[in-house]
Design a protein around this nucleic acid. Structure first.
Length: 161
DNA sequence: GCCAACGTTGGC
DNA sequence: GCCAACGTTGGC
């Protein structure tokens, strides 16, 4: 099983709003980057671990733990002319954008970017690489164990993957 | 609001 | 297939 880091703007979907949703899941709509799409379409499996990251906000960082909760399927917003994620070049017959559902596992303390950057154990973490803009990045098992076990103290989840 | 970095588009 | 222009991300 793999693990991932997925960015969300908390003004849109935060860890709290995920927990409050029906079924505590959310379709990961709005991804319009091929690499990120390919991770969801080709590499994710139901049950994969997710570090839920808040971006574009006052305190960017890891805010909770989630899981991949569905197989990939078409993102409905690409067909909605009223949506800011509307893609006129996509059709229901050949949908361009697929996503998965993400399910709530637990809220954690906020592990901010400066703290993550200060950990030698995480120096090669993809999301911390210079100029990284990918909203979905793979997380190495050792990185997962360190973050979940050492930083979050969630020892019951550190060997999830 | 600024700006570095990067992905995408489209003319050639 | 190249590459300049443009748009977006996301931290600060």
């Amino acid at each position: 099983m793999r693990c991932w880091l997925m960015k969300s703007e908390p003004d849109d979907v935060s860890i709290d709003s995920l927990a409050a949703r029906p079924g505590q899941t959310v379709p990961w709509y709005g991804v319009r980057n091929y690499q990120a799409r390919n991770f969801m379409r080709d590499a994710m499996r139901v049950g994969d671990g997710v570090l839920f990251y808040h971006s574009g906000c006052a305190e960017p960082g890891i805010a909770g733990i989630a899981r991949v909760a569905s197989e990939p399927y078409p993102d409905a917003t690409q067909f909605d002319p009223a949506s800011k994620y509307f893609d006129p070049k996509s059709t229901p017959e050949a949908p361009r954008w697929l996503h998965v559902d993400v399910g709530f596992v637990r809220k954690t303390r906020l592990v901010g970017l400066p703290e993550l950057r200060g950990c030698p154990e995480l120096e090669n973490m993809r999301v911390l690489a210079r100029g990284n803009r990918l909203s979905i990045t793979p997380v190495e098992p050792a990185e997962w164990r360190f973050i979940v076990g050492q930083l979050l103290g969630a020892t019951d989840l550190q060997d999830w993957t």
